[in-house]
Amino acid sequence: MQLPLMNGGRSQYPYRHLLGIEGLSRSDIQALLDTAEDYVALSRQVEKKAATLRGRTQINLFFEPSTRTQSSFEIAGKRLGADVMNMSVSSSSVKKGETLLDTAATLNAMRPDIIIVRHHAAGAVNLLARKVDCSVVNAGDGAHEHPTQALLDALTIRRAKGRIEGLVVTICGDILHSRVARSNIICLAALGAFVRLVGPSTLLPSEVERFGVEVSPDMRTGLAGADIVMMLRLQRERMSGAFVPSIREYFRYFGLDREKLSFAKPDALVMHPGPMNRGVEIASDVADGTQSLVREQVEMGVAVRMAVLEALARHLPNE
């Protein structure tokens, strides 16, 4: 990463890459959220195009299949005027390490300006960022970070509640394998929220309470007084005995239904990074109910990614 650049009085995102929320200051995050507000307005217009990235090349390099994150980055790039190219590399055909660096070198030779990377291995995006000359955005690396998801969640909460500071945010489910949870814990804590984690102990990372969060294996305790209930996706292969016994047992104790939601504040709002497993971690009526922010999250995703791309573009060489 580069040293922060100072820019007059207005706070701006000071780095060349966005590899994680870790290391960002409260004002870095707020600067991105403030910019994103402008792009929410732009995206609601008939004319959605800006010229910020005109002439720039953006490559979406996805080593893991993704629909929503990839299309969200693609739309964000296109609305800013970039030429966007999608490159999906099936993880099974790729051997880690050497091949990743080969790919990086190949792409670098094509002179892109921004690369958006998702990879199944924690730290892979960081490694790649060190080998290329352009800006890199982490779109998810293993169970490490997914910074734009945390930013879009923060923007969604800020718009829905008017603030983040002082809110109780409970993150529920498979924390162990979740990069969304890790980025959110750091982001929300930086913005002054109280973060709680709820999930079976088999799906909690070791010593996670040292992240400055409260941990509970019980929804009733974990949701009491919560302003925001953030549900996480449980991967199918983890539902049948290795981490939790079965879908029905998981839903019984951790699936967010009306009854469990009632443990939270009456005006609590529900979030989910998607795609949802209805009947596993969330009941349909809650997912589609009036307390759900799931659709807003998707909308904020595009705006936040536009803000990130704009912020990085400021550090791109102009000659």
Partner: peptide
């Protein structure tokens, strides 16, 4: 000896 049962239920 491969998968845990539904201990809660």
């Amino acid at each position: 000896g491969r998968e845990m049962t539904e201990i809660g239920l």
